[in-house]
Design a protein around this nucleic acid. Sequence first.
RNA 1: GGCGCAUUCGUCUAGGGGUCCAGGACGCCGCCCUCUCACGGCGGUAACACGGGUUCAAAUCCCGUAUGCGCUACCA
Length: 465
Amino acid sequence: MKLRFAPSPTGFLHVGGARTAIFNLLHARRYGGTMLLRIEDTDVERSRQHHAEQIITSLKWLGVAWDEGPVYQSDRLDRYRERAEELVAAGKAYRCYCTVEELDAERSAAERAGKQWRYSGRCRKIDGDAGEPHVIRFAVQPGPIEFHDLIRGDVHFEGELIDDFVLLRSDRNPTYHLSVVVDDIDMAITHVARGDDHLSNTPKHVLLFRAFGAAVPSFAHLPLILGGDKKRLSKRTGATSAEEYREMGIVPDALFNFLTLLGWSPGENRELFTAGEATQWFDLADVNKAPAVFDPEKLIWMNGQYLMRMTAEQIYPHLVPFLGDAPRTLDELRTIIELHKMRVRTLRELAKQMAIYFIGDDAIEYDADTVKKHIKGDDLAGRLSALHETLLSTDPFDVVTSEAALRSLAETQGVSAAKLIHPLRLALTGRGASPPIFDVAVVLGKERTLRRLQRLIERLPLIEG
RNA sequence: GGCGCAUUCGUCUAGGGGUCCAGGACGCCGCCCUCUCACGGCGGUAACACGGGUUCAAAUCCCGUAUGCGCUACCA
């Protein structure tokens, strides 16, 4: 068994393509087959090498580890020409000398007349000069064309409705239809899993496989991934590339898991699982027929689930790009990551929350709503000064000791501990929400904790009421 | 227009003739936990597109309608 993922390098790796790659990988792994990566760059107008490299980078990031390739179709142009000529020699294809201009004119004339247009096949008859500019077209024979699709079941088309499609362009470059079939034959592909948008092209491919006397592979046409507008996911409706989600702070395993669940389910209400587990359960035949809407909200939730389950060591390498210029070592960040990982949903958020530990003590900005809510009460300045004193003499300065010290102080002050805790949180973080405040204080250390507390006390007259 | 494919809560899905007045998850709303936030727990909201069949019985099978999407290039 052999599968392939065959993107065309005309942009970033689309999440739909990413899912196709994942499904190919999973199916291959499930059945002990191999997976090939093939870059379909026969469209010289739109293909770019840097896009191919970008796609490869994204696949690696995602964890799609193919076995063979990448094979570039642009390295195999002679092979496609050779195969096209074989079909001409066998009378299964022919040279067509019609120009694009002529055909376009015919097409638009037919359109104006309200009629549907198809190529007349007029060049089938003529025996032209192979030296003259021409394309090679496949001579489609009438009759039913049927094939089995792992996902859709049996599908049929009528040969009469299919144009004599172009195999080789006038610049001697192959079209997709030719290159894909030649390669799938040469590379012994047994299962073709690709986007639903190719379903209508499949009869052409079946015809080609037969014309070449080759076995027709199994097909699996995956339903499209839709945007929130129920249209094919596009830039207008949100992020479409794997790269954008990476930049957003999504961890690759989370995206992998999420994409796996778009159009497939392992059953038994399982949602969070590893690629390895999916490998044991996946089968192309179980993929849904209906298109699925990509819901970024759920992806972000899932990413949060991954982050909270990952260790600081696992998160760190993914986090580094979000940290900005100041390099931080894992040792510096370990505790902080542990403290914050369960309260964020993306790496970007995590980096943002972590900033409070690295800015200057005088750079804390007090959140207005939190000030309004917690900076009040009789003699707050006096009580906070007492807290400052208490913390100053707290030794050791650890979570348990400092919390006990604060709580007993609150008791002697006759107020709830919350009356000290909230202002302390504001002093240390500037915010109304944070990890348990004594953990934050310990990470900051006694010195910085006291400095930040002192600063709030000094500013009390300015910000209060 | 032609051809093809599809249709279960707002979204992802389970379910494939009786066990379904339809299960899980995201989101949303309550409550609990609690120094806040988050996590977690509990509860709630919400769906078988429509119409005909077949059958003792249909979300599940068949037909039609509607709607949506895809293809209809010398793009893939």
